[in-house]
């Protein structure tokens, strides 16, 4: 199901890392309101595909067509949270809000949304892995961007955290955004699934 104005069209994409081809001939398109779940065994190239979409890895072949937005404004939730242990939660978020553009929620509101509202003045180094993940998710809220690239969004999160991610995803999709998520779990609201095979 492709909408009338896709956000992104991928044609014949091939990626290799370290001289080894991960996949080739990959094609899909993504429209506003869609959540594309990337599945596949470890090493299939899910994270690499996200990095390629983020413009960090150069495809070995193929084309990314961003249609209206070039270069695309997107959020990447990578394995590493990009959180500074010596800054407080609020300072961490204020930094990303300033650097990415203050178009979303205020830092305090974003912390409230991810369930860290009471900890704004705490140094981020004291957070647990799950809380750090929540802080990384809050970064997506302080700047409003249509496309989210999520790498294992549910890792380290508890049941309430899973529900939180589901809520954030639903909100993003409902307001005209689109999401590509690499995952091993069942993401609620996944409208499409792309399964990458084991590496050749």
């Amino acid at each position: 199901m492709t909408g009338p104005h896709p956000l992104l069209t991928v044609e014949n994409l091939a990626l290799s890392r370290g001289g080894r081809q991960l996949f080739a001939g990959l094609g899909f398109s993504l429209s506003p309101g869609q959540l594309l779940a990337l599945r596949g065994p470890n090493g299939a190239g899910k994270s690499s595909l996200l990095l390629a979409l983020a413009g960090i890895l150069r495809p070995a072949a193929g084309r990314l067509d961003w249609h209206a937005e070039e270069p695309p404004k997107l959020h990447l939730l990578a394995h590493q949270p990009g959180v500074k242990a010596r800054l407080t939660l609020a300072e961490n978020l204020d930094f990303w809000r300033a650097v990415n553009g203050p178009t979303g929620l205020a830092a305090s509101a974003a912390l409230e949304r991810v369930g860290l509202g009471a900890l704004g003045g705490l140094d981020a180094g004291y957070l647990s892995a799950g809380q750090t993940r929540r802080l990384a998710l809050a970064r997506l809220l302080v700047t409003d961007r249509r496309l989210w690239l999520l790498d294992e969004p549910l890792s380290a999160l508890d049941a309430a955290g899973d529900a939180l991610v589901a809520g954030l995803i639903a909100d993003r999709l409902a307001t005209g955004g689109a999401i590509v998520a690499a995952t091993h779990d069942d993401l609620p609201g996944a409208t499409r699934t792309l399964t990458l095979g084991p590496p050749a």
Partner: peptide, 13 residues
């Protein structure tokens, strides 16, 4: 080391 450099690639500047 903490992934900030990767995320700064999506910065507004």
């Amino acid at each position: 080391d903490d992934g900030t450099l990767l995320l700064l690639r999506q910065a507004a500047l």
